[in-house]
Amino acid sequence: MQLHHRIDALRAAGAELYVIGNGSPSFIDGFRETTGYDGPLYTDPSLAVYQAAGLKRGVATVLSPRAALAGMSALRHGFRQGKTQGDAWQQGGVVVIEPGGDVVWTHVSDYAGDNAAPDEILRQLQAASRST
């Protein structure tokens, strides 16, 4: 189960999910068509935000031949989620930030299929909302 399938649960826990990609703004519509995702979606073509968030390594490896081989291996091992989403949902990482600017969760993906666990993030959000 990937994170974007838990949008309702995230909202119930008081959070909103934002997807950030790294292509031209004109790719945003294509991403929506490919994935069926209709929530908030932005892009960071310069990768400046990825870098500031500490995710640059996870993104840069996509561009290397070694990463391409790892990606193929991941596909063979069943990480691919389905025809309509597949590669498009490969995470570079997840960052959870609370109002006020505290970073309460960070996950940097090291390889294809290394996605943040939605349940772990939800547990953390629910614990935070109970404590306030």
């Binding site: 909103e16 934002y18 950030i20 790294n22 490969q90 930030i97 959000l125």
Partner: peptide, 27 residues
């Protein structure tokens, strides 16, 4: 955003917790 308009990131967590999912590819 899709129209090429700049959005300040801080606005995303001004009122509620933001879960930012960075994807590797686009399109």
């Amino acid at each position: 955003d899709a129209a090429g308009q700049a959005v300040e990131l801080g606005t995303l967590w001004r009122d509620r917790t933001a879960v930012l999912v960075f994807v590797r590819h686009f399109g």
